[in-house]
């Protein structure tokens, strides 16, 4: 039986000396130095992670070379699927990233701006390596197309860019369907509302996406512990759960999460 996947994620930026380093958000704003990307990848590979996500948050052209070099070093240490995201805008970016050793690339803003990039990527490299990432935000007005009930109120989910600071007016559900039909192999659903709260994943959002596509869905943002993973798998139907700080700060091990799920009959790779 196919298992639910538990995926640790690192956000990588350049430190003061220009070396790649992992930073983790604490209480929404502060980014805390968390460790060396290659060392962390190695530890998670050994700790039983089902995949590994590496997000380049430098968003600068200068940082890109250094980052690809780091991706290669990570790829050499990790014998599980590796997804790399951040700053991927063109077919050539996809190619370079895969060549550096990534198995999948995660594309966000560039796909919204140029949806043809999804087809180009899928045709050239296969759907299995094209992950479309969405930063969703709840909106309580009449501008949406698909509405969900959240705490007694009706809202829709909007695709945002620039880390949720800018809306696009695009309905997440419509976009998810379009991305799927254009050849996305997986959808990576982040929630601006749940991000950093540790109060659990955005279940209405994740469920709405899962109900409307057949492409695998990775739920992200808001995980505070094993019970949140359980909820997103059983109530929303996600295929994978992503988390960062609970693993980085040793609040839970991957094994803790998997044992919790296994005891409750959620299929995991133990």
């Amino acid at each position: 039986m196919l298992t639910k996947r538990i995926i640790p994620c690192i956000d990588v930026d350049l430190d003061e000396d220009g070396n790649p380093a992992v930073y983790t958000g604490v209480n929404f704003e502060d980014l805390k130095y968390t460790g060396d990307p290659v060392e962390m990848a190695k530890l998670y590979n050994e700790a039983g992670a089902d995949e590994f996500v590496f997000l380049d948050i430098t968003a600068s052209a200068e940082g890109r070379e250094t980052m690809l070099d780091t991706v290669s070093k990570v790829a050499d240490e990790v014998f599980i699927p590796l997804t790399v995201g951040g700053g991927i805008r063109t077919r050539d970016d996809i190619k370079e990233t895969l060549r550096a050793g990534a198995d999948k690339v995660s594309i966000n803003t560039a796909a919204l701006q140029n949806p043809d990039l999804i087809e180009e990527g899928a045709r050239s490299f296969g759907s299995q390596c094209i992950v479309i990432s969405v930063d969703a935000r709840r909106r309580y007005d009449e501008a949406g197309e698909h509405y969900a009930e959240v705490d007694g109120e009706s809202c829709w989910f909007e695709c945002t860019v620039k880390g949720g600071r800018e809306g696009t007016g695009v309905d997440v559900i419509e976009w998810a369907r379009e991305a799927e039909s254009r050849g996305a192999g997986e959808l990576f659903i982040n929630s601006i509302d749940a991000d950093g709260t540790k109060d659990g994943y955005d279940i209405p959002l994740t469920k709405a996406v899962c109900d409307n596509v057949s492409t695998p869905v990775i739920a992200s943002s808001g995980c505070g512990g094993p019970e949140d993973m359980y909820e997103v798998f059983t109530e929303a139907g996600a295929d994978a759960g992503l988390a960062a700080s609970i693993f980085h700060f040793d609040e839970y091990t991957i094994q803790d999460v998997k044992e919790y799920l296994d005891e409750r009959d959620v299929p995991v790779r133990l």
Binding site: M1, L2, T3, R5, D50, S127, Q128, G185, E186, S214, P216, D239, A240, R269
Partner: peptide, 10 residues
């Protein structure tokens, strides 16, 4: 069946 069959299986 959902295709591709993607993920960890026994």
């Amino acid at each position: 069946q959902k295709v591709p069959h993607m993920g960890w299986n026994e």
